[in-house]
Design a protein around this nucleic acid. Sequence first.
DNA 1: GCTCCCCTTGAAAACGATTTTCAATTTATT
DNA 2: AATAAATTGAAAATCGTTTTCAAGGGGAGC
Lengths: 144, 144
Amino acid sequence: MSKAKTKTDFQAFLQKQGLKSTRQREIILDEFLKGGAHLSTEDLYLKLRKKHPSIGYATVYRTLRLFAECGIAEARDFGDGQTRYESSDLLEHHDHLICTVCGQIIEFEEPQIEKLQEKVARAHGFKIVRHRLEIYGQCPRCKP
Amino acid sequence: MSKAKTKTDFQAFLQKQGLKSTRQREIILDEFLKGGAHLSTEDLYLKLRKKHPSIGYATVYRTLRLFAECGIAEARDFGDGQTRYESSDLLEHHDHLICTVCGQIIEFEEPQIEKLQEKVARAHGFKIVRHRLEIYGQCPRCKP
DNA sequence: GCTCCCCTTGAAAACGATTTTCAATTTATT
DNA sequence: AATAAATTGAAAATCGTTTTCAAGGGGAGC
Ligand SMILES: [Zn+2]
Ligand SMILES: [Zn+2]
Ligand SMILES: [Zn+2]
Ligand SMILES: [Zn+2]
């Protein structure tokens, strides 16, 4: 999915929900799509502040939540006390390897694990809506 | 591991760290070992309050953190904003199926998934310290 | 363009879980 | 019992997040 497509998707979402397209939302979406993956609200707020110091923290929060509701972003919680968001743009589902020393995050996808999850869920009569698999440890550079 | 063993382990831990064995810590450990899995601080605090109304919230927090440091308990975060603890007592490693409707938590263990995680980590030169796999969805009773 | 209704905004206050502070108490050692 | 150090409970502080609210802005209909 291209950035342009994401933007029109967001516009369509706003319209459908009776919400409004605003200058701030456009700016925040642009910066979000530009910035790296796994951004916290604070990360994004600080980036935005350089060019748009008048945009408030609360607006960034609200807008990221909107992105998640709309489906153009996904919320992640890596257990460091901050919610992070990543663009659904281009992304297939993936899980994460997280280095607890330097904070580096590596994305991976292992279809066999996904299949086995289905198997486990089926065995318990569960209907899977979503899942999270996070592997914490040390990356090659931080390994002793 | 038996409860008695867990208790002596905790005593040994306290001694080694230059910490003290107190009435409150004994009471809290007893209640923790008695109570169900996946207890939040609040859960445990409320249980304790019935028999020991003078024990403070902060003490329960601090003591659960101690249990985790000592290794007799493990902290879990299922994303509902509360840290939960479960006893390492008797438990092998396991992962969780969580019903987002009724909150039911089912534990499971799938050795093949564990193996595949090792494989993924190896491929990225990662040394695994711990991991979390949580599958969210609807349990049989809550399925539409 | 103008009007009106409702949505959105930014700042500050409120929130909820957790942590810290601090004076009083308890523990463990002498 | 005396001492030093750790612990306690209550209250205040912290931190990420959410809500409140008055002021400002969007856009459908004129
Ligand atoms: Zn996955
Ligand atoms: Zn990712
Ligand atoms: Zn596992
Ligand atoms: Zn469990």
